[in-house]
Write a protein that binds this DNA or RNA. Structure first.
Lengths: 206, 206
DNA sequence: GTATTAACTGGCCGACCGGTCAATAAGGGC
DNA sequence: GCCCTTATTGACCGGTCGGCCAGTTAATAC
């Protein structure tokens, strides 16, 4: 069922199947999507999907891997091209991640599915991103630009988790009284986290 | 198949079914659990589950509703019995929520499922909890004990989201270099958030 | 004791599941 | 031209799905 009747383009076919699978799996979850759904959405036969990807599970693994790898590589590239370590870089990195999820909310859903899958492999793909982010924070700490008594990796985990959850729980928040929109939340979040990470003017205990 | 052969206790039976459904649904998700799984886990027949709850969907809705209502009521009770509004109350509330999820990690999973369900009703059940928490923060802000230029509801959303995501993404974090354990993360999180929410010693712009 | 109600069972239904397989057809190398 | 590879199809498999229904059995009301 490729566009010019009777012609074949296996690469494009694979792409179409992967796109359809990404859309349906992220939307409904692995268990709620059938091979027949995938076949219909991508405009090919069930058998052809098996031919190209082997099994439903294998397709799902590939979909996850591709999406997370693309995300991680993009973020790493932006982080490596960034300015000197310091509060501004942290601020920009948080906002960059927030904007990314804002434009690609389906990625937040994908993360949620992988967490519930107890997925082993997907956590490894963004490890490099976390390592790089933590390193930048550690450098800023070494220069006295960020408070030094917190674990840099925990800082990354904190802001990634907070932003991710914001988009995952959007439907929930709609029922919560007084919760603001994306912009207000990002503003407040940045105020609090940056305020908590800047070194205090005076020395402080506790 | 109740304990004393031949006797009946429909309330206990319903309870057993609900317990089994909670366990299986939270573990595998709605779509990946069959009525036959539920029947086996609870030790009754498939037909009996239909008799008591009507359908698989209705059972899932009831399971979600009960669990979230119990959680919300418990947290509201603790919050209402708490001390005066201020930094200490906020600190304790964050830690209380964190400890709750630490003891009941399945609740974090339940939240993830409800988010992916695009569940309409479950967000309403904890609205009262959010309203109450935000009100306490607003009171503390009014007394100058917490910085006043952030939306209290966003503060609640922030710490709830961060703690929830921490437990949802645990498997992921295992692959992230340098991320600490529960105690270290909670410590760092509290340092940052409390540090960011305390009024600055000197007035500051920006 | 008997009638009524509700808890509970086992068997059955049509639909759908993921996967396989033989057959067909198109493309590329020669 | 032919051949070999492979993309692609549709029919088919055994198994499982959620739900239904007729029948049995225990508690209850009178």
């Amino acid at each position: 069922m490729n566009s010019p009747t009777g012609t074949r383009d296996p690469d494009q076919t694979r792409e179409r199947i992967l796109d359809a699978a990404y859309k349906l799996f992220v939307d409904k979850g692995f268990a709620a999507v059938s091979m027949r759904d995938l076949a219909e959405e991508s405009g090919v036969t069930k058998s052809l999907i098996h031919h190209h990807f082997g099994s439903k599970e294998a397709l799902w693994e590939l979909v996850k891997e591709r999406a997370i790898e693309a995300y991680a590589k993009g973020q790493v590239a932006e982080l490596e091209a960034a300015e000197e370590p310091g509060p501004q870089l942290l601020h920009d990195s948080i906002e960059r991640y927030f904007r990314f999820l804002q434009e690609h909310p389906e990625v937040a859903r994908l993360f949620a599915w992988t967490h519930l899958d107890a997925d082993q492999s997907c956590g490894k793909l963004d490890a490099e991103l976390v390592r790089l982010g933590a390193e930048r924070i550690r450098q800023a700490q070494g220069r006295g630009l960020l408070r030094a008594d917190v674990n840099p990796a925990n800082v990354v985990t904190l802001f990634v988790g907070c932003c991710t959850h914001w988009f995952q729980a959007r439907a929930h928040h709609a029922h919560w009284p007084g919760v603001g929109d994306d912009e207000e939340f990002l503003d407040d979040f940045l105020k609090i986290v940056m305020g908590g990470l800047l070194p205090r003017d005076g020395k402080e205990g506790s």
